[in-house]
Computed example of a mutant assay.
Amino acid sequence: MIRIDFDALNPLERKIHATLKAESEGVEAIPIAEAARLCSCSPSKISKFSKKLGFNSYRQYLDFLYDRVAPEVVQTSELARLAHFIEGFDNSKVDALVELIGTHDKLMLLGYGPSFHCAEYFEYRLKTCTGKMVVAVADELLATSMTDENTLLLVLTVTGSFKPFDDVYHDTVEKGGEMALIVEEYNPDLIERYGKVFCLTDQVQCSELQPFEKNRTVLFIFLEEVVRKLMRPPR
Rank of each mutant, 00 (worst) to 15 (best):
I30K: 07
A136H: 06
G131H: 12
R216A: 00
L230I: 11
S92K: 15
D166E: 11
E120C: 14
L110H: 08
S40R: 15
I2N: 02
P164S: 06
L107F: 09
K15L: 05
R37M: 04
V135M: 08
T19F: 11
Q60N: 13
V73N: 03
R59S: 12
Y112T: 04
I2E: 00
N215I: 04
F55N: 09
K175R: 13
L20Q: 05
V218P: 05
F55P: 09
I2K: 10
D95H: 15
D167H: 13
C199Y: 06
K196D: 03
F85C: 05
L82R: 12
V27P: 07
V74K: 14
L230G: 09
S115L: 04
L9Y: 04
P43T: 10
V94D: 03
T103I: 00
D105W: 06
G113A: 04
D95L: 13
I191T: 06
E192F: 14
Y112S: 09
I16D: 00
I101N: 01
C206Y: 09
A119C: 11
T76D: 05
R14L: 12
A83I: 01
Y124C: 02
T159S: 15
M179W: 06
I32G: 10
V98P: 11
V158Y: 04
M133T: 10
I221Y: 13
F116N: 00
I221L: 14
I101G: 01
I2P: 11
A18V: 13
K45C: 03
E23K: 15
V158H: 08
P71E: 02
Y61D: 01
F6E: 07
K175W: 01
D63N: 14
L100C: 08
I30D: 02
L79C: 05
A18L: 14
G102Y: 02
I86P: 04
E140L: 12
E224S: 14
H17W: 14
V73H: 00
T147C: 14
T147M: 06
I32Y: 06
E174D: 12
V227S: 03
I46K: 12
K93M: 04
S44A: 14
A8W: 02
F165S: 01
C199V: 06
A180H: 03
I221Q: 08
L156H: 10
L65K: 09
D139A: 12
K21T: 09
V69L: 11
Q203Y: 13
L126M: 13
R59I: 09
L12N: 11
V197K: 09
K45E: 00
Y58V: 08
P71A: 12
R125S: 05
